[in-house]
Design a binder for these strands. Structure first.
Lengths: 191, 191
DNA sequence: CGCGCGATTGAGTAATTTCAAATCTAGTGG
DNA sequence: CCACTAGATTTGAAATTACTCAATCGCGCG
């Protein structure tokens, strides 16, 4: 049992309890893989083969608009899932890029394997339901933050939620995540 | 079998197929209820007893900031789910108001009943997982729209996604949903 | 007719963006 | 140890976008 496996099991057991046999079984549906900094997990225009559990490291998902500007949808630090959800679910081409900001270890699962796993092990169906519900709650919070608050408040909100983020992510990327220009973020001088 | 029941069954069967017995069984977990225009499904500060499937009518969820301004998180037209997800899941007090904009017919389910139903009927666990995944995809799209686009493009985006919305929702509320002032929305004169 | 509500318009102000230039910083090679 | 470069960050100034507050318009309804 590697450290990654133990961490992943603990991650799943936040939602459902597992026997050793169940964990061993479900684990066979995943592939562990290392990615180096700057490597892509998903590239716009390609099909999306996997959903990724980021065990260690840091990845971001983003889209690039017609003026070439990048907009960051998500940072996935340790213990988080990331993919181009729409493309993954529907089997369409990615509209997002997903790129590692640090050397990263991920556990990957294909759509086929995930659906099979959900059918064969009800606890995993439940796990994904709960996890996705959590995800929706977080996305709703972010939407309310975006429509309710100005740039400064959104920035403070982010720092509060991810205290260590400034040490790992450039301010230009944080600006892109918050939906403001990097110059504006820079002028919010604080903390 | 009422029209509402038939509609609800079709809604569920968009994700999973059901036998008559399964539908009858799952349906016992829900309560059908009518609400009149302006009635609250959820009020800020109260506990959230149910998740609501809006069969007919229209409800909105919103939060009110410290300056008294309302920010609209969601419109639930026919065939959509709505609740204060965070408060419902965690059993905490609502931070959202949910209010009917029209006379509305809803099917309501408590957290306890939903969890029981998911345990007793794997297809419903799957249904909720799929539905919540869809929800996440939509929320992600909205976030990208909010951080990528200006007010005009967000407005056009909304009209494209919900063509009939102007006939059912005041422009002040649409502005609140888009995160702009109603005066600004008014000045985007088009369509 | 006149009230009430939603929508629009006007004018001034505030927030944010853009483009350009200056500064800072970490890592590299001499 | 230092100079140098590439990338990140900050700063400046003007332009744009959006907001606020107030007034007006339009329309359905008693």
């Amino acid at each position: 049992m590697t450290g990654i496996q133990a961490q992943f099991r603990a991650h799943i057991e936040q939602q459902v309890t597992l026997t050793n046999e169940e964990f061993d079984f479900l684990y066979t549906h995943f592939t562990e893989k290392k990615f180096h900094k700057h490597q892509y997990l998903v590239q716009e225009g390609n099909y999306v083969s996997h959903d990724y559990y980021i065990a260690q490291g840091l990845a971001k998902s983003s889209s690039t608009d017609d003026t070439g500007k990048e907009h960051i949808l998500q940072f996935a630090m340790g213990d988080a899932w990331i993919t181009d959800l729409q493309a993954f679910q529907l089997g369409t081409k990615a509209t997002l890029d997903i790129n590692c900001l640090e050397d990263t270890i991920a556990l990957m699962i294909t759509l086929e394997n995930r659906e099979k796993l959900c059918s064969d092990l009800g606890k995993m169906e439940k796990f994904f339901r709960k996890k996705t519900t959590e995800e929706s709650i977080n996305l709703q919070r972010r939407i309310l933050c975006l429509i309710s608050n100005n740039a400064r408040d959104r920035y403070e909100d982010l720092l509060e939620k991810y205290p260590g983020i400034l040490q790992r992510v450039s301010k230009a990327m944080i600006a892109s995540y918050l939906g403001v220009s990097r110059e504006t973020l820079s002028r919010l001088a604080l903390t």
